[in-house]
Computed example of a mutant assay.
Amino acid sequence: MPDSSMAQRVSLITLGVADLERALAFYGALGWTPHAQSIDDVVAFFQLDGFVLALWGRSELAEDSGVVDSGGWGGVTLAHNVSSAAAVDAVLDAAADAGARISRPAGPTPWGGYSGVFVDLDGHPWEVAHNPGWQLDGAGRVSIG
């Protein structure tokens, strides 16, 4: 009999976007490549390390999820950990060059790291962080402590 508890993992994160083509151009400018199983003009999938990120029309995502889209921030921030403060600066510069708004410039943090935040073209905030207390393996996978 299968375990009825939910495993402690995330398999897929879907970001609702206003314009899929524009969102694909933005993430492409950051060096991301959509997976071949993406569906033209409907949804784009990015194979990440152990899970998938999808871009899908915001109104379609809201309907599918059974929620009312108030158009505001949804209370979620994504994060991208890197190996150094210089890498934080480089990623934020690339995001700004691709059209992102830098909502918090990079700088030292109260927890001893270095981070900044960019907001993508659809309002999704991404923290880019170097946390010296967390380990990144060769593939960029993070582990706490």
Rank of each mutant, 00 (worst) to 15 (best):
S65K: 06
A95E: 07
L48I: 02
G138V: 05
A25F: 00
R22G: 03
E127S: 10
D69P: 05
Q37V: 14
V117A: 05
S83Q: 10
A139E: 15
S70M: 08
G31K: 11
L24M: 12
D97T: 14
D49P: 03
G28W: 09
A100S: 09
H124D: 02
L55E: 03
P2N: 07
P34H: 11
D3S: 14
G72Q: 06
S84N: 09
S11F: 04
F51T: 07
D93E: 15
P132S: 04
S5P: 00
D41C: 05
A23V: 04
T14A: 08
A86S: 13
T77A: 09
D137I: 02
P108L: 07
G74R: 13
V91N: 01
V17Y: 05
G112C: 08
D69Y: 07
D97R: 15
V67T: 13
D3P: 04
S59I: 05
S103Q: 09
V42S: 13
G113F: 07
A18S: 12
G145S: 08
G145Q: 04
R104H: 13
Q8N: 14
D41K: 15
V43F: 03
D64H: 15
P110S: 09
I144Q: 13
F26E: 00
R101H: 08
V88M: 03
S103C: 06
L12H: 08
W56M: 11
F26D: 00
G16V: 09
F45W: 13
S4P: 13
V52S: 11
S11H: 08
F26C: 05
L55S: 04
D89R: 05
G72N: 06
F45C: 08
I144N: 10
R58F: 01
L53I: 10
A90L: 09
W73V: 01
